[in-house]
Design a protein around this nucleic acid. Sequence first.
DNA 1: GTTTTTGCACTGACCAGTCAGTTCAAAACC
DNA 2: GGTTTTGAACTGACTGGTCAGTGCAAAAAC
Lengths: 231, 231
Amino acid sequence: MTSPEAPGSGSAGQAVPVRIGGMESSSATSGGSTRREATRQKLYEAAVTLIAEQGFSATTVDEIAERAGVAKGTVYYNFASKSVLFEELLRHGVGLLTASLREAAELTERTGGNKVDALDAMVRAGLVFIDRYPAFTQLYVAELWRTNRAWQSTLMVVRQEAVAVVEGVLRDGVANGEFSEEIDVQLTAAALVGMVLVAALDWKSFQPERSLDDVHSALSRLLQGRVSGRR
Amino acid sequence: MTSPEAPGSGSAGQAVPVRIGGMESSSATSGGSTRREATRQKLYEAAVTLIAEQGFSATTVDEIAERAGVAKGTVYYNFASKSVLFEELLRHGVGLLTASLREAAELTERTGGNKVDALDAMVRAGLVFIDRYPAFTQLYVAELWRTNRAWQSTLMVVRQEAVAVVEGVLRDGVANGEFSEEIDVQLTAAALVGMVLVAALDWKSFQPERSLDDVHSALSRLLQGRVSGRR
DNA sequence: GTTTTTGCACTGACCAGTCAGTTCAAAACC
DNA sequence: GGTTTTGAACTGACTGGTCAGTGCAAAAAC
């Protein structure tokens, strides 16, 4: 099940039954069995594609259960409600993205790259993420600017974490003179995120045969202002 | 004429409502009453905000009718179904955007601007549009990359019309040497659209007190590569 | 007199969430 | 070893409610 979607905690090896306490702090249901974790994972995977395709409200719990190969009751055994399932899915997915962006930025830092390099590395990290989890990305974009929804506040927090990584790099770049002091950090960060997001979704939807490198270099060019003019 | 048929009665064919290419609704209002047009307009306005907030499936026809101050029967007198109403709304809205972009590009052309100016004018036109119709924009973004929905093909056609305007300017710019020949027109256009879309939605959602000029200048800077480095 | 809107009762499909009952692997016991 | 008990995990039929779409007679608008 190295399935193509549903950001889940790695691909939980289903062979190894022993899994000692390590990592995750969320204690609550400690003693969590592996079986349960596997079921949740299957549910995430089923839900993410269905919701990306049809939207949250148009996706039924029966469908999710069916695609996960599980009874409907199991969904409710594992999650308090349909929207809790969704909320948890969102939190998890964006967490992965944030970690990935942060790592890209830090790696560049450590290997002595400048801030433009960091930005470029983050663009690539974003593309890699979208390449791996297109459905999740799609669903995220669809929900991000909605108001009046149960998971709105969760989403906002989680979004801010991701955007903050980009903003941080921009701010650092301004501080060390690499970027103009005139730039508006917040707006520029949003614009950069949008650039990657939309270009990548278009790539996946309308010309999926293109390579990641292709897309990356097009965006790099734009990012570095190598669009206009000669050369 | 895509003249509105009588209230879809008969249980007749409910075969997939996907129908491409319908001509523009008569702008001339030929014969068509203005009253009807006004009712439709009210329904569009009611539907757009509700659907932007809640999504298509979570929005009920009763709600739409109520917010429009109209009886439910009227909705069905004017539109064959809920999804037809939505589809027409999409077509209508994107039509406005496309016209606006095209106008911006042409005006720049006529007043002797170069292609960068045209792009910049289109960015502004996009911002003005989003400023005026934030709910529509939001809803459009939420639906754009969905698959498996009834109005998918309509959306695709209409999206292409809008993106094509941007692509056209880019292509012209490449042709006259203003832009590098290396740019990927399609991807760059998508990225530019994304930049404006996401920056503007963030603006509206998270810092609505900013002025349009503010946002525009931040994007202009990015567009012209005046972000990094020197002056 | 024709078109459009209203109001409202009605139907049939669909769906989130529930709950009494089943499964089965590991623990407890002999 | 073999047997019994336990309980977490899972099942799926069922319920109560919701909602798209219908039908139609009468009023309003043009």
